[in-house]
Write a protein that binds this DNA or RNA. Structure first.
Lengths: 176, 176
DNA sequence: GAGATATGTCAACAAGGCTGACATAAAAAT
DNA sequence: ATTTTTATGTCAGCCTTGTTGACATATCTC
């Protein structure tokens, strides 16, 4: 990281007020690459979603419901970090159009358990494959350790409090 | 990548219709980690932006103008991929509040060259440092090759057509 | 039975995208 | 020199997706 070098020198030669110099020198490269990568990454599904009259909000909901059959509203809200009113708007549309089904909870009948219909699974898979194509292109020619590094990096960008939760969600159990 | 293994087996044992099996098996882990990481990454600056009456759109504009003094409207539009009307709304506010300055182009007087004011640079730096803290936390205990891998991965997620442009923007010249 | 919890819903609003139409000044082309 | 193209600005209205606040219902828990 070229940006860090002048900072390090400044610190070593003189005295700085900041606590940790390395964290004080902006990592412009990773900040900007993250922006551009995300910009392009989420744009792939847009065209397809459009055909169904859906947006990115629908995509997120459908994705997690498809991945976690039986997800409750509360769990989904915790994943997406939006209000129940916002969620309900898109969820309602997904249900009306037959992509998601809501069943009453068995142990707790106040809960709604969400399931993707076959149609819902199809669409979710289609979109996931599209994004996977981009990911595979980026991973190609990359060592397994490289993929490991990327995975660990992304995981550690997440708020520490959420990491175990996310790990469970993503990997199924609790490893890294 | 555990997801790819069953696919590979399916392909090797039988015959599939898809072109490339590896790209057909959803990389759920990287898809979801990317979502959660981005969610938390962009949330850091929000509180500070709020104090100034700004949103994420203002942040993006300010960031790139601060990083590239003399950026033109057209270049900014190309980076952000939004319409000029959308850009103008937030840009106007940034100029009115004294965070960005717009000067007439010298060689082409139709152009507006954008510059961050000292106040603008201060805010941009403050936000960049905040995000850098998260990045450094994620990179800690990571080998230099790990950081390299992350950087290359993000770069290669970007549309191929844009990569050289982004490289120039991010790294200053044209290396990788 | 009382209170807490999971969800649904109405209404209003804000941010930040979009389209379409039109205006101006300056550069470029003829 | 005139015409055309380009870079930007602006008005008006719309859409998606987020927000808050208030209130309703069913069900679980104590």
């Amino acid at each position: 990281m070229p940006d860090a070098i002048p900072a390090l020198k400044a610190q070593q030669s003189g005295k700085e007020t900041g606590k940790d110099i390395l964290s004080e020198q902006p990592a412009y490269d990773l900040i900007e690459l993250f922006f551009f990568a995300y910009r392009d990454f989420v744009s792939d599904p847009d065209r397809i979603l459009d055909e169904y009259g859906f947006g990115r909000a629908h995509h997120r909901v459908l994705h997690f419901v498809s991945r976690q059959p039986g997800l409750t509203i509360a769990e989904l809200l915790d994943i997406l970090r939006i209000t129940k009113q916002s969620l309900n708007r898109v969820l309602k549309e997904l249900i009306e159009k037959g992509f998601i089904e809501s069943r009453m909870g068995t142990s707790d009948r106040r809960q709604r358990l969400l399931f993707a219909t076959p149609q819902g699974h199809d669409l979710a898979l289609k979109l996931a494959k599209l994004q996977t194509r981009r990911i595979m292109r980026a991973l190609s020619e990359m060592e397994p350790e490289g993929k490991e590094a990327v995975s660990r990096y992304l995981l550690r960008l997440i708020d520490p409090d959420d990491r175990t939760h996310v790990k469970q969600l993503v990997f199924g159990s609790g490893k890294t």
